[in-house]
Design a protein around this nucleic acid. Structure first.
Lengths: 189, 189
DNA sequence: GTATATAAACTAGCATTGCTAGATTTTCAA
DNA sequence: TTGAAAATCTAGCAATGCTAGTTTATATAC
């Protein structure tokens, strides 16, 4: 009997409608506009239905954050492709990272600022999160001895730049100069 | 008549009691426990009194964030003092920055994560904010031509490291190695 | 085909929040 | 002493996340 399958499919479809609606509202009106009532109205179900999909509001944000990490990983992998040398690869990845944060502010907020209980470097770490880290590591240089330290540092620098740019605490104009400085210490001596 | 002066003093005193209470609660129970009702109870006044001091809850957070920048600036200035050379100065400042973020998580959250309408690099930018930036610039090297770019980048790297350390996304153990890597590209060639 | 147990969804409401209008008290000068 | 103005309080609104308890739909057994 395909009834259970159909139900499963319909459930998954509805779950995706929830996250899609949440993401749309977050990107256009900010996360504070993403209320359970609003989402229920959007998917045309009552509020408790949402709680049969997600434990609480934070879990919805977390689901979108995971999507975000998947998309960030893809964007970073894409960025390395055309690069002809190490320097250009790093520069391309760095600019892609900053562009991603700039173009999807609500998504980036879900990934880094809002309280999701996402765990990193643990047994239950989502593959999307590992993928994003691996994409950075690929640009840093998988051969070098200190890959992990260098990738963590690269990531931190990019995240810091993205966050301070977003909040208007560093000048938008000097972006490329800052990226050059970051990269200069990641090129093997 | 010193009546107006006395009233002014009492008002300032009460305002400080508000921020002190908010900060204490935030550090011990998190910012979500800092409610207007709770603060009113703490200072033994009714809720509307708080709104005669601050426009809204965010303004209270902002006031504490400004305090935080003042204290961060002091900590960074203190850190440079004993250093005998450029490298050690940068390392000392970097470690002091990360320690500050680690030891005052709620304060740091107010300064960088929570919505305060704090403006940087503008006419009405608070001196505390400038001071903190200047303290970093002092360690980077006031003489070099690209002070501003270098300081912004240094700041971003430190902020990124602090944020990713806090959320457990990079390993606590590799802190010094990451700091060394950041500094290595800030030393004049 | 009909009854029944189970699954699914809804209604209604609780407790908490930030914030405020309007009443009330306190303060100070005439 | 009085009256206006300043300071403070009471009470409540609208919105939020979340849930208990009820109703409705659905699939299975007869």
């Amino acid at each position: 009997m395909g009834i259970a399958e159909r139900k499963g499919r319909e459930r998954a479809e509805r779950e995706q409608r929830i996250t899609a609606a949440a993401r749309l509202i977050a990107e256009s009106e900010g996360w504070s506009a993403v209320t359970i009532r609003r989402l229920a109205e959007e998917i045309e179900y009552s509020q408790p239905v949402l709680y049969s999909h997600f434990e609480n509001r934070d879990a919805i944000v977390a689901a979108i954050a995971v999507q975000g990490f998947g998309e960030l990983a893809a964007a970073l992998r894409e960025a390395v492709l055309g690069s002809t040398n190490h320097w250009k690869a790093l520069e391309s990845v760095a600019m892609a990272y900053l562009a991603f944060a700039r173009e999807h502010p609500a998504l980036y907020e879900a990934m880094f600022t809002l309280p999701t209980g996402l765990r990193f470097a643990e047994a239950d770490t989502k593959p999307e999160l590992k993928d994003a880290f691996m994409a950075l590591a690929a640009a840093v240089g998988p051969a070098r001895a200190d890959v992990e330290v260098a990738t963590e540092t690269f990531w931190a620098a990019l995240h810091g730049l993205a966050d301070l740019e977003r909040s208007g605490r560093i000048r938008q104009g000097a972006r490329e100069a800052r990226v050059r400085l970051v990269i200069s210490c990641l090129i093997e001596p």
